[in-house]
Simulated scan of single mutants.
Amino acid sequence: MNVGLEPRTTEWVQAALPPGHEITAVTALRGGWTSRMSRLDVEGPDTSYPLVLRSFLKPFYVRHAPGLLAREAAILRLLAGTSIPAPRPLAVDPAGETAAYPSLLMSLLKGRVDLTVDRSAALARQLVEIHKIAHKPRTYQAWTDPDRVRVPDRDTALWRHAVDLIRREPPPWEGRFLHRDFHPGNVLFDKNTITGVVDWVETSWGPADLDVAHCATAIALLHGPEQGMKFAGHYQEAGGVLGDEHRYWRLLDALGFAPDAEKVAGPWRDLGRTDLTPDVLTRRLTEYVAAAIG
């Protein structure tokens, strides 16, 4: 059976399936950066259904996979008892002891990623619901700090001022359950309805401001700085509560994308946003940082 997976991975998946069920096709899913995402079509007696396989192949993520995948599988099991539309975990091999690579097998959700339309209000409503989950995972980790920011070659005075504004201790915060990587690329839509939220490997405990800021930066890059600046308002209109020093978290997140947001740009271009060139993204990010500074 040639299904496009490593033999060890195929055997591991088959062992997780009910007797008589077999993988009949494997299709690469676009939009992933940290891992290989594959759709598996499965057939059994009188039934057929799709699954998703996440596998970490890059050495950095292979090293960290035991924590990342074990955490994601545990969170997905937790979310199964909530209203959050998340995948259902079926099997996990966090260290790649049986599969060829560290892997997580899960259900495939209806819908697709659509980066062409700004759906900030719907995203904000979903994020408010995520923040209501009564569970305390690990404390968040900042994804940049003042000494690691890669300042763009232009508008350096603006950028260095932004860096100076985060050169301090974080403001006091009230803890919430965070997705931690919530943005339009990790949300599935069927027309205008959210049908899935995916990629739960970074789930953390921290300020709601951090999730809001991360989604706002992505919206600014995808749809323009003005739209990104409006996202916090959408979140508050949906019932969410932010801290008194939201600017700190907004800048902390935006600076992590400097200088050109290339980490997300590649997957976004794969999903059809070929207009998001490095120059466009650097300009939007610079304008967004300027607006955040005020």
Rank of each mutant, 00 (worst) to 15 (best):
P7V: 15
E11C: 10
Q14G: 12
A15P: 01
A15M: 04
A15H: 04
E22M: 07
I23M: 10
A28D: 15
T34G: 15
T34E: 14
R39C: 09
D41R: 15
D41M: 15
V42L: 01
P45D: 12
V52T: 01
Y61N: 10
V62R: 08
H64P: 06
L68R: 02
A73Y: 05
A74Y: 01
L76N: 01
R77I: 07
L79R: 08
G81H: 09
L90D: 03
L90C: 09
D93E: 07
S103L: 11
L105I: 11
R119W: 11
R119Y: 12
L127D: 14
I130E: 08
A134N: 10
H135G: 11
T139D: 06
Q141I: 14
T144R: 00
A162L: 15
D164T: 05
I166Q: 01
E169Y: 04
F177R: 08
R180T: 11
F182P: 04
L188D: 06
G196P: 05
G196M: 03
G206D: 06
G206L: 08
A213L: 03
H214P: 02
A216E: 00
A216S: 06
G224S: 05
G224W: 00
Q227G: 10
Q227L: 08
G243Q: 04
E245M: 13
W249Y: 12
L251Y: 03
A258C: 08
K263Q: 02
R269T: 01
D275S: 13
D279K: 11
T282H: 11
R283D: 14
R283G: 09
R283L: 06
R284Y: 03
T286M: 05
T286H: 10
A290K: 11
